[in-house]
Simulated assay, not measured.
Amino acid sequence: MFTLRRIICLLLALFLYLSSLPPLTAEAADVNPYQERLALYKKMETVTNVPWYYLAAVDSYERGLRKARRDRPDAEGFISIYYAQEEWVGPLNPNKDDVDPTTISLFEGIGLDGNGDGKALLSDDEDVLYTLARYLESYGFTEEDFRIALWHFYQREQSVTIVSGHALIYKQHQRLDLHNHAFVMPLNHNYSYKSTWGDRRGWGGRRIHEGTDLFANYNVPIQSSSHGIVETIGWNPYGGWRVGIRDLDNIYHYYAHLNGFEKGIEKGTIVEAGQIIGYCGSSGYGKPGTQGKFPPHLHYGMYRDNGITEWSFDPFPSLKQWERTAKQAKKSKA
């Protein structure tokens, strides 16, 4: 039989146990973040008439920036758009924790109340998204208006290009869950590769190898490893015939030394993970059309953008992961 003392001890133990658990974030909760975000985007579209895919594009870009930069904390909710506290409440506002939309406006802060609770909270997804939507709305609703708004927001042409590309991808697919990947070659072809990122390269001056070489026969199909948009295509003296695709995590995927491009692949083309974009070759290291200075292979590189600059990182771990996933999928279908 339970005594009052024993019940109190059990409750105290339960309280201590629950207190020791990590906080439940939006990402960790048993919800679909894509559905939650899309609902927020479409709600703000209804309120402001700003197309939801514009809001999704900025949010996706900002999510990538948070992953790439150490000076920004992880997002607490579903929306990753970042505003500095001082910008939110106003640079001359003596109350740096101000949540009153009236005084925030008085001190020329940008924070707005997006859900009608009388508060402008930097930690509230609806308030943050509404603030962005009203900013975009002030410039207009066309694609050109969107690009102008982005230029004033980021003051960087590359950021404008990336966010605009995100918007086109979301507009075409009409959904958000576009972050799956594919291996860069069909598994039924012979190929080999190892980690070569950082190796020395001599042609064209001393430099490091900014990618992984996957050796295969001529004209083996090359597949896009991600959903994205073709940002660059054509000849490069180092990479020969190459394609550059930007994904929704702001990562630039570089496919070089191709023997040719798949029909219909051009600048601005929106591609899906696993879609054929070109064919393995040995082009490069010279003027347009130079071939055969090395065995046929795909040079595959990955570059991360942090809103200020862009740098390469080792794609080998990602390639191995995508290859394993592809093999498991093939095995499960057999």
Rank of each mutant, 00 (worst) to 15 (best):
Q223K: 11
D213N: 10
H253K: 12
G198V: 12
G198E: 06
H209V: 15
G268M: 12
Y254F: 14
L168A: 12
S192T: 15
H166I: 05
Y193G: 01
R246S: 05
G260Y: 05
Y255L: 03
D249Q: 14
I251H: 11
I162G: 02
N236I: 10
H257E: 04
Q158W: 15
A273K: 03
G204I: 04
D247F: 01
N259M: 01
Y170N: 02
H179P: 07
I276S: 01
K194S: 15
E231C: 13
N217M: 15
H189D: 05
W241K: 05
K267G: 05
R201K: 14
A167R: 03
Q172D: 08
V243G: 00
H173G: 09
G244W: 02
S226Q: 09
A149G: 01
K267Y: 08
N190S: 15
R200N: 15
D213C: 10
E262G: 08
E262D: 09
A182P: 01
Q172C: 08
H179S: 09
R147W: 02
R147E: 10
T196R: 06
F215P: 04
V243N: 00
R201P: 05
P237E: 10
R246G: 01
G198T: 04
R156K: 14
Y254P: 04
G240E: 03
R206L: 13
I222Q: 02
G202W: 15
D177F: 12
H152M: 09
E266K: 11
R242A: 10
N259C: 09
Q275F: 01
E266M: 13
Q158T: 11
R156S: 07
K267S: 06
Y252M: 11
N188C: 14
P186C: 10
G211P: 06
F261S: 05
L187Q: 02
Q158F: 09
P237H: 13
D199M: 12
H257M: 05
P237L: 07
W241G: 05
H152D: 13
R201T: 04
R246F: 00
V163M: 09
G260H: 03
N236L: 14
T269G: 03
H189E: 03
S164W: 08
N219R: 12
